[in-house]
């Protein structure tokens, strides 16, 4: 199956992007198929930049052939002559010899992200990097489906999305999704489970129910939302499908880690993210914390950053600040100072 027929099948399945964007996969494929151009490209994105998320790595190491066949299927479907498998640096190091072997003779190139890091998975940056340019996001529109790699229509999909399309094509798709569980749990790892499962059910299913008071970051170790354990039962797992559990007392440390992460990952292109993340770090490590100032900065980053990275810090940061507030007596200045390295 390929071409319009496959796209119809994808549409029926209701598949959305497994990178966390939630974009309708059939729409995307359709856009590239319909684009009129002399060349088209397909990119399978295995940058997996969100911390606490390893499902793409799991798939790449267990089902590389299926993924490669999925890329070829995508190329046939949209009419691309060349494909790319784009990998996070650490995945590239571990998997390249195996993948190169499998890719021998195929019109698919293996590429590694550069310089690496969270933002290198953003689709416009993936394109910049493959073109050998500086890793900075580009303004959309035009979308990659219209003008992508070297200006040609480009289908860029997460590795799991491509793998899932292969399953749909083979009639093996069972509405499951890959989840990564990490943090304060008995059995961390990557698990296959039904789509739309709740945090509680996943924890039960994987024998990971917490014995103490915890909170979870769901859907990405950086941008994922913070949920408390009394809402686990109703919380569906979104985003990149990650769940990481932490003891309540870890909230301040997680907050510091989060801010450090954004400070490091900001590409430096726009003022609110570049400066905001830097000032947040300054404020959170100061002897006396000015929470109002922190909230002002989060608000500015959320509302005015150029790309999704800068905009995404506010949600988890607010969640962590709230939790940190609940255990306020336990966050001492020394603790911040201790973490400040």
């Amino acid at each position: 199956m390929f071409g319009q027929e496959l796209i119809d099948e994808i549409r029926k399945s209701g598949l959305t992007g497994r990178s966390g964007s939630g974009f309708n996969t059939a729409d995307k494929w359709h856009a590239v198929l319909n684009a009129n151009a002399e060349k088209k490209y397909v990119i399978a994105n295995g940058a997996e930049g969100e911390p606490d998320t390893h499902k793409d790595y799991y798939l790449l190491s267990h089902y590389p052939q299926e993924i490669i066949k999925g890329i070829i299927l995508a190329m046939h479907t949209v009419g691309a002559m060349e494909g790319f498998l784009y990998l996070k640096a650490s995945y590239f190091d571990r998997l390249q010899s195996k993948l190169r072997h499998l890719l021998r003779g195929l019109p698919i190139k293996l590429v590694v992200e550069n310089p690496g890091g969270y933002r290198c998975g953003e689709e416009t940056i993936v394109i910049q990097v493959i073109e050998g340019k500086r890793a900075e996001p580009q303004f959309k529109p035009p979308y990659p489906t219209q003008k992508g790699l070297w200006g040609y229509p480009t289908l860029i999909d997460n590795v799991e999305t491509i793998y899932t399309v292969k399953l749909i094509n083979d009639g093996k798709y069972k509405k499951t999704h890959y989840y990564t569980i990490s943090g304060h749990v008995e059995h961390p790892g990557t698990f296959e489970a039904p789509e739309n499962i709740t945090v509680e059910n996943l924890l039960v299913l994987t024998d990971n129910e917490p014995q103490e008071k915890t909170f979870a970051q769901v859907g990405g170790g950086a941008s994922g939302n913070i949920v408390t354990d009394n809402t686990y039962f109703s919380c569906k797992i979104t985003g990149t499908g990650s769940v990481s559990l932490h003891l309540l007392g870890e909230a301040p440390a997680r907050l510091l880690k989060l801010i450090k992460f954004y400070k490091k990952e900001s590409c430096g292109k726009c003022i609110p993210c570049r400066e905001g993340a830097y000032r947040l770090y300054e404020l959170i490590t100061a002897p006396k914390i000015n929470w109002q100032e922190i909230e002002d900065i989060l608000d500015t980053m959320e509302k005015t950053s150029f790309c999704a990275l800068g905009r995404s810090i506010a949600l988890p940061a607010r969640g962590l600040i709230k939790l940190a507030g609940e255990v306020k007596q336990t966050i001492t200045e020394e603790e911040y100072a201790k973490n400040n390295n």
Partner: peptide, 24 residues
Amino acid sequence: PAGSSCRLCLAQVDGSPRPTTSCN
């Protein structure tokens, strides 16, 4: 080409969740 890095030229479009830069 608009680099849109200073984020000062903000405008609020009706129905949009947050302000956008008007230069792009």
